[in-house]
């Protein structure tokens, strides 16, 4: 446990997943800031981040008190459900069955929705605060789950996973401060595909550990599972595209 075969995929999964979620949150916070003013947007996002840090501070140590096999079984199952949900969506997006996530469109939609609330008064902007707080919590809960889940599966993984998420946050905030617009050029859908593969592989491995599977090659099964799920997911893309095309043509 704790070797590079564990740490590298855990850090990569935590960083990329956090990057995608923070990019989505940034879009809404920018919309709030540009329409309602920056005070409500930044205090709302800041309050959301504080709540998320408290959640990590609570759940991280609590999970450390539970026997590792049980944690691997529970967290592995949740991680697998989460990862396979992401991966199926990523396959369907890549196949053209589902629409790709578009940050520019999301920004325009949020801006319009916030304008519909009318002009901001002179005092504290509760609408701006609530919108920024809610999106930070919604996207951040996913980050917290991923960090806690990939961090709890093995000794010495929590800190690298948490640092990877913090690094992703800093990268998104820094780029957002420079660009001052939605980060629509970030290849979110491809990142989600990769993250889905990594989380599915991790979840499978930890469930296996939890139920007493003897993995061939021990920890080196993780990269093998990553490669296996990647091949299967990539093969699923043209298959779904072929199925969806005649349906679209006949519609």
């Amino acid at each position: 446990m704790g070797g590079w075969s564990h740490i590298a995929p855990a850090v990569t999964a935590a960083f990329l997943a956090s990057l995608v979620e923070f990019v989505e949150a940034l879009t809404v916070v920018l919309a709030v800031g540009s329409v309602r003013g920056w005070r409500g947007a930044l205090t709302g996002a800041g309050a959301g981040l504080v709540v998320l840090l408290v959640l990590v501070a609570i759940f991280g140590p609590v999970l450390a008190l539970i026997p590792l096999n049980l944690v691997q079984l529970i967290v592995g199952t949740l991680l697998l459900l989460f990862g396979m949900r992401w991966l199926r969506k990523a396959i369907l997006r890549a196949a053209g069955v589902l629409a790709l996530h578009d940050e520019d469109a999301a920004f325009a939609k949020q801006t319009e929705a916030l304008r519909a609330h009318g002009a901001q008064g002179g005092g504290f902007d509760s609408i701006g605060f609530a919108a920024a707080f809610q999106i930070t919590m919604l996207e951040g809960v996913e980050v917290v789950f991923i960090v806690v889940a990939v961090g709890a599966g093995g000794a010495g993984l929590m800190l690298p996973a948490a640092l990877a998420a913090v690094a992703a946050l800093l990268v998104v905030v820094a780029i957002g401060a420079v660009v001052r617009g939605p980060l629509s050029r970030v290849p979110e859908n491809q990142l989600k595909f990769v993250v889905g593969v990594l989380l599915t592989a991790f979840g499978s491995f930890w469930i296996g550990e939890g139920i007493g599977v003897q993995w061939p090659g021990d920890d080196w099964s993780i990269p093998a599972l990553v490669a296996g799920f990647l091949v299967v997911a990539l093969a699923g893309v043209p298959l779904c595209a072929r199925i969806a095309r005649p349906k679209a043509a006949s519609a």
């Binding site: 199926r88 299967v232 699923g236 298959l239 595209a241 199925i243 969806a244």
Partner: peptide
């Protein structure tokens, strides 16, 4: 399950 789940959604 992954492939069948995706195919089912695509249909």
């Amino acid at each position: 399950i992954l492939v069948l789940g995706a195919v089912r959604k695509a249909r």
